[in-house]
Amino acid sequence: MSKKRSRNIFIAICVSPAVILFTLFMVLPTIEVFRMSLYNWGGFSKTKEFVGFNNFKLLWNDMNFIQSFQNSVLLIVLVAIITIIFAVFFAAVLTKEKVVGGNFFRVIFYIPNILSIVVIAGIFSAVYDAKSGLLNSVFGVLKLDTFKQMWLGNQDIIIYSIAGALIWQAIGYYMVMYMSSMASIPESYYEAASLEGAGKFKQFTSITLPLIWNNIRTTLTFYIISTINLSFLLVKAMTGGGPDGSTEVFLSYMYSQAYGNSTYGYGMAIGVVVFTFSFALAAIVSRITKRDVLEY
């Protein structure tokens, strides 16, 4: 009996600090997001008024929110598609071709992933600068002056400039993920295929791609969650949502409403919508990309 008791005490001592911290700083704030979205609460005043779903109704007609919605969806789609193409290509090259210095390439490609998003914002401000930016001066040297752009000033293209920075940051990370799942495909499959005369491209589409498909599907959820998060962090550090709201994304709008504008209830309603949207999108994407899992 006392043995059992000391075992239970041991378990309680080990688990409770984690449970307490997790509840205090993860569970409670998450519940607060949902609860506060039902209140009209303007800033530091103590008056909270229960308004039901009124915040959500307001959102429906808020053009700024709709703009941020469009920007976020555009970024998610662009970043996911382009990053997958590059990451899968480079992963296939580095695992299947006997590239000289393969390890060197892998190490370099991963570098953007270890940089602070604030540093990345600084780097891309230098790259995109209209007058003395790296990108425009490269075009200048190549005599391609027509390609020169106000990368961060032109409202029509700035969102693509943001996408570029996000893709630059993401390729290496996902490449390493795909590499590890490609490395576990038995070499004999490729030998058999090449004996039957299948070319490299055919081998890729009928062996590599089907066998890493599940891995790609998993990463689709990552793309959704991390693009929503990282686009906020990057936009906040780089453009602040401007010029004129043209780079406002989901969470940057939420943050500026909740923290900057002190309309907490409204900000949290945005959070709830984004949270629900990202889960629904992840579920839909996961459903429509479902294929029979190939075993090997």
Partner: peptide
């Protein structure tokens, strides 16, 4: 139950809860 809490926690993003933590 605790294990599924841990898994659910993987989906909670700091960006969502920064302001509620501040208010708390």
């Amino acid at each position: 139950l605790l294990n599924s809490f841990v898994k659910a926690g993987l989906f909670i993003n700091v960006s969502y809860i920064a302001v509620p933590i501040f208010l708390m």
